[in-house]
Amino acid sequence: MGPTDADLLAAHRAGDEHAFGELVSRYRAKMWGIAARTLQHPEDAADAVQEALVSAYRSAGSFRGDASVRTWLHRILVNACIDRIRQERRRGTVPVAEVEPRHQRGDVGAEVVTRLSVERALAALPAPQRVAVVLVDVQGWPLHEVAEILEVPVGTVKSRCARGRVRLAVLLGHLREEER
Rank of each mutant, 00 (worst) to 15 (best):
Val118Pro: 05
Val134Phe: 02
Leu150Pro: 00
Arg28Asp: 03
Ala56Cys: 05
Leu150Glu: 09
Glu43Met: 01
Cys81Glu: 04
Val49Ile: 09
Arg180Ile: 08
Gly61His: 01
Thr114Asn: 06
Pro153Phe: 10
His74Gln: 03
Val24Cys: 14
Gln129Phe: 02
Pro95His: 04
Lys30Ser: 07
His103Lys: 14
Leu172Asn: 06
Ala80Thr: 07
Glu43Leu: 09
Pro95Phe: 01
Arg176Gln: 11
Gly65Ser: 14
Gly15Pro: 06
Ala123Thr: 02
Ala127Ile: 00
Arg28Ala: 05
Val136Glu: 00
Gln129Ser: 05
His174Gln: 03
Val49Arg: 03
Ser159Leu: 14
Leu172Cys: 11
Gly140Met: 08
Trp141Cys: 01
Ala80Gly: 11
Leu9Tyr: 13
Val166Arg: 12
Val154Arg: 13
His12Gly: 05
Pro95Gln: 09
Glu51Gln: 10
Val94Trp: 10
Glu178Tyr: 03
Glu111Ile: 04
Ala45Pro: 00
Asp66Gly: 11
Gln87Asn: 07
Gly106Cys: 12
Leu143Asp: 12
Val170Asp: 12
Gly106Glu: 14
Ile85Tyr: 00
Arg70Tyr: 11
His74Arg: 00
Gly21Met: 11
Arg26His: 08
Arg75Gln: 15
Pro126Glu: 14
Gly173Glu: 10
His12Trp: 15
Ile82Ser: 04
Asp107Ser: 14
Ala110Val: 06
Thr38Asp: 02
Gln87Glu: 14
Asp83Val: 08
Ala35Glu: 10
Val136Ser: 01
Ala67Glu: 05
Arg37Phe: 02
His103Ser: 13
Glu179Thr: 11
Leu125Ala: 05
Leu77Glu: 06
Ala19Asp: 11
Gly65Asn: 12
Arg176Trp: 10
Arg37Ile: 07
